[in-house]
Design a protein around this nucleic acid. Structure first.
Length: 812
DNA sequence: CGATGTACGCTTTTT
DNA sequence: GCGTACATCG
């Protein structure tokens, strides 16, 4: 909830002097409803806030923190608040600062990953890493695994890099390592043996590179706490109040981390093991209040759990009361965001998930506008509707920034983008940028990593021949062999170019590269004790790019895209300068960690004055006056891949629910009759979720039936579901909508006369007549079944590709 | 070693 | 329909 919906947001500095007896947090409770007040003021070891969409959870969380601080119940440094994205963390910090002023500074408000990086940075030496470790993003992990798969010839066993990667990730999220997995796996299975080898090799490679992958950041922190109780106690003593947002999206390792942090201090320590039998710290006296576990507050909504696919475990929240006996539960159901129509639609949809606790959002702001439905002929037609409607709203006084367009898959953004450009609607694609995944950016970062973490061989290999300096596979292997023979690192091998036995030209190139890296190191990593100037990262990056010849190579290139690449690099330099401004003491290592942990949802910053386009996943946690959910079709939402996964369709429904509940005043649901995917056109069917919305809430500007009447075959499409896909009707516990319902909803709009060209025989040379384009001759027919496409040359001129099944054509 | 051409496979969501 | 990955040629 934003400030305006819960009464006035209290802005301003600290608590100020107060009369004795007055609650120091009275103003913090202003405008809150009774359960919200409970959530702010309850004091106990464990609190679960079940916060429905738009129920003001952020407000409650920030006020709860503010009230702890103002009441002197906690120092800022004793607070650890975990959010899902860096952006959410920044927002929360801002809002707490608005309530309590600068004293918010010492708090840890960050994502799980960032918090773990901070901890690991301090403790890395304990277990074989150095504090200058770097972080492998998914791309780095993929590259490494790919190499290992090749080395092990694991593809012969059907192990693809993608499969290995996701399995390793899943195991790490369950806190399993290669060793423990090997104990449970069936090692008679050669595939399993290869996998275990791969897993172990992968882990060794990471360790050698002094690097952690995303999953390691959490898992290794848990291992650290378990292996070194004294270290764990340092953090248990420090964090007395732990708050976790979006708890429904935590996975097992994150849960385990929270468990470790909320154990009583000294609870698993072995006092006599330390310092030769001398007790050097308190005995584990659990009844000593000083050793009491930290208080834990979690906030979540199981209806908004949309990350099960990457290990989020809904049981973390559904079994919270069992996990933390005596926990208090507060339910926030009053919604301050949306109109009742929107909420009723959301409630109706989500109530189709069968194993959920019933929860109904309500509001007192009134019914509001009806939800608008629209069916386009194609995804471009659909996009045009969205663009037109955006302009209508704009003229009615709605700011572009208050409108958002959601879609299930990133690929859907292309059609929207095309139409928006043509219609001159200003927009920004959120998260789609993938700035840090661009090759030139990864190259530049690899240069920085090579300087920051010389052990990271991957980064070094990446830049070895970028720009081209004649160092190819052969030379790379020679360097690696030399390093192995001499028992030195890959990086140190570069310094001995003359010993590699390569040609003089290549030798010179290696010397040059080595020198550039050395010079940059000196600039960015000054001798211990000295502090690098805050501009060091920016200066170092520019030095690397220019002296390595990277920039020059791009400038000299005649590929027109290279100009854009240069601009991207300038942008990266700008990012380093911005970083220096925000973190005057920030080091190169800090910069790299920040970059590795930024997510797509984080650059939602300056979307002022433009319409926001994003996936439904990215939309979580955001809200807009007007929301367009596009592509509400079967196989898209619910996505076809989800059909085979346990709980998949239900998660898709939650995703749709999340999309709906982002809207404050206006909600549009749109779909297309046909959609081009993989470069081929196919027939789309309305999503089953549409039929879960009560008819009176939804007003169709153009219903699936309307589109049909133009010559399509909607009724067939709606019905077609029954055959061959999950049987007829419904299976127990499945999400299939009974066929009769789907027919009822659209029945009155489907014309009596239905055309279905499904079995029209067409061959090259046939003549046809099209309702709009007139007569023409078939050149070719491609595709199969419902996707059969006729390539027709019309007499009036021009050729068209027509989907035979639904095109308004007749054979002559 | 690098440039050019072709085949293939891919598209669910992301810290 | 696009980008990557591999193969072949210069």
């Amino acid at each position: 909830m934003r400030g305006e919906s819960a009464g006035t947001l209290i802005v301003g500095g600290g608590a100020g002097p107060r009369a004795a007896g007055e609650r120091p947090d009275e103003d913090l409770l202003e405008g809150l409803n009774p359960p919200q007040r409970d959530a702010v003021t309850y004091r106990g070891s464990a609190l679960l806030i079940v916060a429905g969409a738009g129920s003001g959870k952020t407000s409650v969380l920030t006020r709860r923190i503010a009230s702890l601080l103002r009441g002197r119940e906690a120092w800022p440094s004793q607070i650890l608040a975990i959010t899902f994205t860096n952006k959410a963390a920044g927002e929360m910090r801002e809002r707490v600062e608005a309530l309590v002023g600068d004293s918010a500074r010492g708090m840890w408000i960050s994502t799980f990953h960032s918090a773990c990086v901070r901890i690991l940075r301090r403790e890395a030496e304990q277990f074989g890493f150095t504090s200058s470790f770097t972080i492998y993003d998914s791309g780095d992990s993929r590259a490494l695994i790919k190499r290992l798969v090749k080395e092990h010839e694991a593809d012969a066993f059907g192990l693809t890099p993608a499969a290995v990667m996701s399995k390793i990730s899943r195991l790490k999220n369950e806190l399993a390592d290669a060793e423990s997995y090997a104990r449970t796996a069936n090692m008679n299975d050669p595939v399993e043996r290869v996998f275990v080898d791969l897993f172990a090799d992968y882990q060794r490679a990471l360790q050698r590179a002094n690097a952690f992958d995303f999953d390691d950041l959490i898992a290794q922190t848990v291992y650290l706490f378990r292996a070194f109780p004294k270290v764990a106690d340092v953090y248990r003593r420090r964090f007395r109040h732990i708050l976790v947002d979006e708890y429904q999206d935590t996975n097992h390792s994150q849960y385990a981390l929270i468990r470790e942090l909320t154990k009583p201090i000294g609870s698993d320590a072995e006092p006599f093991a330390a310092a030769g039998g001398m007790m050097i710290f308190d005995a584990p006296a659990e009844d000593d209040p000083a050793n009491a576990p930290a208080s834990l507050t979690v906030v979540g909504d199981s209806d908004q759990s949309i990350y099960a696919f990457r290990g989020a475990d809904i049981r973390n929240i559904s079994e919270f009361e069992k996990d933390f006996p005596g926990a208090k539960v507060v339910l926030l159901e009053q919604n301050y965001r949306s109109t009742q129509n929107i909420l009723s639609a959301a409630n109706a949809v989500i109530s189709n998930n069968f194993d959920r606790k019933d929860k109904k959002l309500w509001t007192d702001v009134g019914a509001g506008e009806q939800i608008v439905g629209f069916t386009g002929y194609s995804q471009h037609d659909e996009a045009q509707f969205v663009a037109d409607e955006v302009e209508v709203l704009r003229k009615a006084g709605v700011d572009y920034a208050q409108m958002a367009v959601f879609y299930r898959t990133n690929s859907q953004s292309r059609a929207l983008e095309e139409i928006f450009i043509r219609s001159a609607v200003p927009y920004k694609i959120m998260g789609g940028t993938k700035f840090y995944e661009r090759a030139e950016i990864k190259d530049a970062l690899a240069y920085l990593i090579a300087v920051a973490n010389p052990a990271d061989e991957m980064a070094l290999r990446r830049i070895l021949n970028k720009p081209r300096r004649g160092i190819g596979d052969v030379t790379e292997t020679a360097i690696a062999r030399y390093a192995a023979d001499e028992q030195i690192t890959f990086r140190d091998a570069l310094a001995n170019a003359s010993a590699l036995g390569v040609g003089p030209k290549i030798q010179a190139a290696i010397v040059q590269l080595d020198a550039v890296l050395a010079e940059a190191s000196e600039l960015m990593l000054p001798a211990t004790g000295e502090l690098a100037p805050s501009t060091a990262v920016a200066d170092g990056l520019q030095l690397l790019l220019s002296k390595s010849g990277y920039s020059d190579a791009l400038r000299a290139s005649k590929d027109p895209q290279d100009e854009a690449r240069l601009e991207n690099l300038d942008e990266l330099v700008a990012v380093t300068r911005e970083f220096a401004r925000n973190n005057p003491d920030g080091t190169l290592i800090d910069f790299l960690a920040e970059v590795a942990l930024v997510s797509d949802a984080d650059d939602l910053e300056d979307a002022s004055g433009v319409v926001s386009l994003m996936t439904l996943h990215t939309a979580k946690g955001l809200e807009y006056d007007a929301v367009f959910v596009t592509g509400v079709e079967e196989d898209l939402i619910p996505h076809r891949i989800s059909a085979g996964e346990p709980g998949g369709p239900q998660e898709e429904r939650r995703l749709f629910y999340v999309g709906i509940t982002r809207a404050r005043k206006r909600l549009y649901l749109s779909l297309a009759m046909t959609r081009a995917q993989f470069g081929e056109v196919s027939v789309a069917m309305p999503s089953r979720f549409l039929q879960e919305i009560p008819a009176e809430l939804l007003s169709w500007r153009q219903s699936p039936g309307d589109v049909n009447s133009r010559g399509g075959t909607r009724s067939r499409a709606l019905n077609a579901r029954g055959s061959g896909f999950g049987g007829s009707g419904r299976r127990y516990g499945d999400d299939l909508v009974p066929k009769s319902t789907s027919m009822e909803r659209f029945a009155n709009r489907i014309p009596a006369k239905v055309r279905d060209n499904g079995d029209m025989q067409l061959a090259p040379g046939d003549r046809i007549r099209h309702d709009d384009f007139g007569e023409g001759r078939v050149d070719a027919v491609t595709g199969e079944g419902a996707k059969r496409v006729a390539h027709v040359r019309f007499d009036a001129g021009g050729t068209k590709k027509l989907l035979v099944k639904i095109a308004p054509i007749a054979k002559l």
